[in-house]
Amino acid sequence: MILVRHYVAPSPIHGLGVFTREQAKKGDVIWRFEPTFDVEIPERLLEFLLDPYAETVRTNAEYFGSRRVFRLGNDGDIFMNHSDNPSLIDLGDEMVAARDLKVGDELTCDYRTVVVLDFSPPPKAQLKESTP
């Protein structure tokens, strides 16, 4: 669950992204797993989902291989894009601001740390990500 006010809009990184509506300081908790709001889906249940829903899980949910479970957010989290220079640092059940965030900054994470199974980055030539 994203703990700051946020909105979803077109992203310069890829498709849609999630952006902050408020400032945050480096180290502030921006996202936290909330089991009453977010959902964990056992891998074995994907075969019972219609293809578009299974694809949504594989391309948007964090995967925990040791537990064979996907964690899918139920807010703007589903639109969080990958960045090689992410605005958030993954600490497991929390993500904190990697740097001070301004209103309008895109909330991003590193899919090399936050494992998303069907992540396929856009070609480098298409990336228009700005550096802070």
Rank of each mutant, 00 (worst) to 15 (best):
F70I: 08
G65L: 08
R21C: 07
G65W: 01
N74A: 10
D84S: 11
P86D: 10
H14Q: 12
A97C: 01
L3R: 12
G92L: 13
M80I: 08
P35H: 06
E62T: 14
D28C: 07
G104L: 05
D118V: 03
E43M: 10
A98N: 04
L88E: 08
D75P: 01
T59S: 09
M80F: 03
I30W: 05
H82N: 10
V57H: 08
I30L: 09
G17V: 06
R32S: 10
D38I: 03
A24W: 15
D110V: 11
P122K: 05
L107M: 00
G76C: 05
Y111H: 10
R99Y: 09
S66N: 13
S120A: 15
E43S: 12
V115P: 12
V96S: 07
D77N: 13
T36N: 08
D77L: 13
H14M: 13
L49F: 10
M1Y: 14
L117G: 01
A125G: 08
K25R: 15
L101A: 00
E106C: 01
R58P: 04
L117Y: 07
K102V: 04
S130Y: 06
L50N: 02
H82W: 10
L72K: 04
I89R: 08
R5D: 11
V115S: 03
A97R: 11
R67N: 12
S130H: 09
D28L: 02
V69C: 13
R68T: 04
P42A: 05
V57C: 02
V114C: 07
D100S: 02
R112C: 03
L107E: 03
L88P: 04
V18Q: 00
P122I: 12
F119K: 14
H82S: 11
N60S: 10
V4L: 15
G65S: 14
L88K: 08
